[in-house]
Simulated scan of single mutants.
Amino acid sequence: MTTWTTASRISTAGVHLDGDLSLPEHPAGLVLFAHGSGSSRHSPRNRAVAEALNRHRLATLLVDLLTADEERVDLHTADLRFDVGLLADRLIGIIDWLREEPETAALPIGLFGASTGAAAALVAAADRPGQVHAVVSRGGRPDLAGPALIQVAAPTLLIVGERDPRVLELNEQARNTMRAAAELRIIPAATHLFEEPGTLEQVAEQAARWFGDHLAAPAARR
C-alpha cells in the first residue's frame, strides 16, 4: 500500500505550525498526533506509531505544536510544554483546519496524545465532540485535562507501561472519572517511554485497533 507524505504549513491560534501529513490509499480515518513534553513531530516514537497506523489505512498528521522560536524558549524554561490550554487551543485550530482541507475534510478524526500532549488531546476532544471520534493516550497525563476530562465524549484508550507506577495510578483515576467509554491497557515490562523491545509495537497495534474500530463507525452511519 502506498502512502504519500507532504509537508503542511498550518495557521492556527495566531501562529504558523509545521506538520507532516501522510495519506495512504483510501484512508478510513485520520489521526492527529499531540506530542509530549519537550518533543516534536520528529519524535521517533510517534513516527513509529504513525507508520504503523498508515499500514492500517489510517492517515496521520504529526505537527509541531510550538513554533521554532517558542521551542527555543521552552528548551530553557520548560514552561510552554506544560501549558495544556495553549496546546489544546492549537489542536482545536488544527482540527478546524483539517475540516477545511479537501483531502481530509471527509475523514473521521482521532487524536493520539503522549505525556502532556494527551491532556491537550482530551481537552480538544471535549471542545470538538462532533469532530473527534476517538482518543488514544500513550503514557499520558489525563489528569492535566482538568474539568474537561468528564466532558470528553469520544471513546478513549489509555495505554500505560507496567513499570510506570505514578502515571499508571493517574490513568486509573482518569478512567474511573471519565463518563465516556474508557479503557486502560497496561503494556507488560514497559517504562514511561516504551523503550523496551517490542513494547512500542504493542502500543501501535493497540492504537490501530482502537482507531480502526471507532473511526470507521461515523463514516458507516452517514
Rank of each mutant, 00 (worst) to 15 (best):
T5C: 12
A118C: 13
A88Q: 00
H192Q: 14
G36P: 06
A106P: 01
V84S: 01
D69E: 15
G139P: 07
E201C: 03
F194S: 09
E100I: 01
A119N: 04
D89T: 03
M1K: 07
A189I: 08
I187Y: 05
D83I: 04
L122M: 15
L87T: 11
E205W: 05
R9C: 10
G93Q: 03
T12M: 07
V31Q: 04
A180N: 13
I94F: 01
R138I: 08
G212P: 08
I159Y: 05
L149E: 08
L65W: 10
N54V: 04
L65E: 02
P218C: 10
A217M: 14
L30Y: 01
A78H: 15
V132A: 08
A153D: 06
G36F: 06
L122C: 06
A189Y: 08
L80V: 09
R47P: 02
T177R: 15
N54H: 11
L144G: 06
V84D: 02
P142T: 07
R99W: 00
A28W: 00
M1C: 14
E51N: 13
P218Q: 09
F112S: 10
A59P: 03
D213C: 10
A7H: 13
Q131Y: 01
R55P: 07
V160Q: 05
P218H: 12
E103M: 11
I186M: 09
L122A: 09
Q131R: 06
S137E: 08
H76S: 13
I10P: 11
W4V: 09
A105G: 05
E162Q: 15
V160H: 01
E183S: 14
I159V: 15
L149A: 03
D64K: 01
R221W: 13
T67H: 00
W4T: 14
L91W: 02
L184T: 06
W4F: 02
N171D: 15
G113I: 03
V135R: 03
N46Q: 06
R141P: 09
L200V: 10
G19M: 08
H192S: 08
A134N: 06
N171T: 11
L158T: 07
G146R: 11
R47I: 08
E51S: 10
G19S: 10
R57I: 05
G85V: 01
I109Q: 02
E201G: 12
V31F: 01
T2M: 12
L200R: 13
M1N: 07
S22F: 04
M178E: 06
R128N: 07
E183I: 12
